[in-house]
Amino acid sequence: MTGAALRAFVTIAIALAAGVLWWVFSLALLEGPGERLAPLAAEALPRSGVGNPVTAVLLNFRAYDTLLELAVLLAAVLGIWASGPPDRGFAPAEIVLAGLVDWLVPLLILAAGYLLWVGGQAPGGAFQAGAMLAAAGVVLRLAGTPRAGLPRGDWQRVLVVAGVAAFLAVGLALMAIGHGFLTYPPGHAKWLILTIETAATLAIGATLAAAYVGGSPPDGPPGEDRA
């Protein structure tokens, strides 16, 4: 098939697929909502230990999903580390940018802490807080810190694993004392969730910052730092 014919074929095929999809979705929408999970979630919210329904879904009702999602993040960063050393990074910042960074990074870390804490009751939570930490890392790397504020070698690995580790530790400890895996006992849910969320925030922040650096972390004692 020639280029133009292929182009026309793909365009028509996608247009047809769009029509079918629109037909299906509009039918589904016009049928009315039917059986949904929202009433179940709303009913169980007071027992979940948090007031924000999205956090309740993420860390209580569907905690398995979030655990596996953190595992996906871990797999992605392992793949990035396996693809060799990172780029050299940027030249050290001049005085104006350096001054801005000195202000911005503490503010971002503070915002991350706030989002983590407020996530129990209002919009916010581990993902948003982790993204703030990663943003601080990106700003640091842009201003000439090659490792984006991440610790050296082994500690970086510990940080990246922290989310999955805390999740599994809490889940297995709950199993050991006779509850289901990640079935929080009533009254303790809030603090267990906050523990997991704190570890997850650090892990997500470290993972995304490491993904931005885009290469294996430097190993060994100080002085062998490749960057």
Binding site: G124, G125, Q128, A131, A135, V138, L208, Y212
Partner: peptide, 22 residues
């Protein structure tokens, strides 16, 4: 969806933008 908005502002616009720009 304010939770999603917060994540999108930080990640969708900020972080993927920084990655792709680099």
């Amino acid at each position: 969806a304010p939770d999603v908005a917060l994540a999108e502002a930080a990640i969708g616009a900020g972080l993927s933008g920084a990655l792709l720009l680099a």
